[in-house]
Design a protein around this nucleic acid. Sequence first.
DNA 1: TTCAAAAATTGGTATATACAAATATGTTCA
DNA 2: TGAACATATTTGTATATACCAATTTTTGAA
Lengths: 240, 240
Amino acid sequence: MIDKNSPLPIYHQLEEGIKKKIESGEYQPGDALPAERIYAERFNVSRMTVRQAITNLVNERYLYRVKGKGTFIAEPKLEQKLTGLTSFTEDMKARGMEASSKLIKFEIIPSNKRLAQQLHINEHSPVYEIKRIRLAEDIPMALERTYIPANLIKGLTENIVKHSLYQFAEDKMGVHIKSAKQTLEASMANKEETKYLEIEDQSPVLIMDRISTLDNGIVFEVVKSTYRADRYKFMIELNR
Amino acid sequence: MIDKNSPLPIYHQLEEGIKKKIESGEYQPGDALPAERIYAERFNVSRMTVRQAITNLVNERYLYRVKGKGTFIAEPKLEQKLTGLTSFTEDMKARGMEASSKLIKFEIIPSNKRLAQQLHINEHSPVYEIKRIRLAEDIPMALERTYIPANLIKGLTENIVKHSLYQFAEDKMGVHIKSAKQTLEASMANKEETKYLEIEDQSPVLIMDRISTLDNGIVFEVVKSTYRADRYKFMIELNR
DNA sequence: TTCAAAAATTGGTATATACAAATATGTTCA
DNA sequence: TGAACATATTTGTATATACCAATTTTTGAA
């Protein structure tokens, strides 16, 4: 379980080892973990090193400690893994519909204050503004506005945008999106939205804001999407 | 800042002290925290003790460390927790708000066709109907209607509903919720919703439908929640 | 047998120390 | 000036040790 010559820290190896036993079911919720001093002796490492591994797992909710009693396997955490919230294209495909998109704007503009803040760049710094209409079976479903710092991804063309932006970023720049924060809220359509989505004024719409971050922590994009409430429903599946 | 005779652990005192300086604005995001050895010397404690305090703050996202450079004040955390299957109460707590709820209906009614289908029971079978208003800081945020098959959970009382329904189900029945399917859509408030949520007619609202399933595959509940669009935003965090 | 005291076990706090690894700074030499 | 090297500083990993606090187990006397 422990290789002292490994470049990986001992506490990390121990952490992974314990995690694996939990996930495989060898350690069941409620079970007591061997005492810290036992681990220390068994692997001939310091108790403090064992503690470091266990502390991390406690922080990640895999374990919990009770003073004087021991350390125990925690109940698996419901939530955390949201499957779903896939891309529009995938989403439509899953519903058996033909997805397409129409590019209506592709420009470099100076960022305003709010955008600069979200993208962690200076105000007025150039950003790509990509505006698209998302359609399913040729019916407008959403208006999508994407903002990407211009200096982050040079040589972006309309053509690329028509294909996969993420694919381009991965292939040419070797960057991967690590996480995304999304918010969903209800609102009423503004003028631009009613126009492109072909809905009446004051119709209810769903607004989704997404901020995507790369492996290295750099904010890659800010996306603001407006969905027709009468045609679109978000599905979120939660498993444990 | 540090009282060695206090019953509170030193690392905890240090933790609170640093946190206070961050929250008061004395330490600004991006600022470097004094080095660990500086703190150790200044308060005449071990560097390891300082590390324990800082490690906790790093885990809570108040600080972040860069090897060889130092420890820095993190950007203020706006939206840490995802609104996934976390309860309204937890959700509000995460946002630093006081959550409460008002029970406005608790009855056993015969299920209609649609409900029976969702719950996988026969039409007209009895179900609990629990109607609640969810409040944050005494402001109505959502109207929540929960439906549970009556034969699934006998002896449910108003009092239990006021506490935790899930807790009751886990403790008394030993059942765990395994998964949930949620849909989110925008709509306009109907009469009942405008009344309880204290909003104007035709206001936009967010409607969340949830179907929760137990370990054994039995559908446990159907929840229909209507959220005020002007006060509530769903946050979803996705990580790779 | 019963119950209270003592001992053992477990996690919690704290110290001192050592070296590794990444980064920043200063210095030297071409 | 500018590049290469050495040095200092910072966090990261790991060990050994000591005692505290809560809990469980064992012991022993009534």
